[in-house]
Nucleic acid binder design. Structure first.
Lengths: 129, 129
DNA sequence: CTGGATCCATGTTGATACTG
DNA sequence: CAGTATCAACATGGATCCAG
């Protein structure tokens, strides 16, 4: 990870470099909704509109693209039940669960350093204003 | 973290809700350069242009704002030595080091699931193209 | 119910030039 | 050396309407 900037070395794959993958994963969980979606999914499989209600004021367009991105990285599975009306279930994969555990570590970190962060942000405002 | 959408409850602080802080931290480490900057800083304090060379094709404008953001969250310290020419040293704080450790966990996750991720991405391309 | 398509507001990143 | 200022390009997220 210490050398993410050297770019792609080989043209046969888009991301052979694990560093790039690390960055893309960080970017994924760092986006606005992925983490909370995964957190809801961690409690069990959910259907589309169920998730939509659960993760708040997310729009369906964004929920769709978030889910697609998660699915595209193998973090989430999408199962279509050919019923009327259609029913689609999303669930975390093993890798998704493992990544979710790491996200929980960030939550724990935040819990531990909440005071530090707030102090730093207050100091920032202090010196700025 | 399961209820990040309920918004701010009190007006006296911008982020009393730990969930919001978790999201902001995820957003910070999920941005394009913060993680690699922290990774370089993990090896020891660095000066501005030193970092600039180290983290590759980052522009100084972006390096500056990245560092400012990190400093604003108390993850990094900025020490100015009033010499000629000016010398500024950046270093990880305790919280920064702890967060960096978590980032390393993501790197470990990537190492463990690299095959899964690539398979998922290939399948994605496969069905898309 | 699930989700595609379009249009739009905004934030983030990057290139470049200039300053103490 | 270590930034700041400005402008342009691009990505992200959101609102709304439409369809299987």
């Amino acid at each position: 990870m210490a050398d993410a900037r050297k770019g792609a070395a080989s043209p046969t794959a888009e991301e052979l470099d694990p560093c790039d993958v690390v960055r893309s994963i960080l970017g994924r969980v760092g986006d606005k909704w992925s983490a909370v979606v995964m957190d809801e999914l961690a409690a069990g499989p959910r259907r589309f509109n169920e998730l939509r209600r659960l993760v708040s004021p997310i729009t369906q367009r964004v929920l769709t693209s978030t889910l697609r991105a998660l699915e595209g990285d193998g973090l989430v599975t999408r199962t279509v039940h050919p019923t009327i009306p259609p029913q689609v279930e999303y669930a975390l994969t093993d890798s998704g669960r493992a990544l979710h555990a790491i996200i929980k570590n960030v939550a724990a970190w935040t819990d531990a350093y909440l005071g530090t962060v707030h102090a730093a942000r207050s100091a920032r405002k202090d010196s700025a204003g």
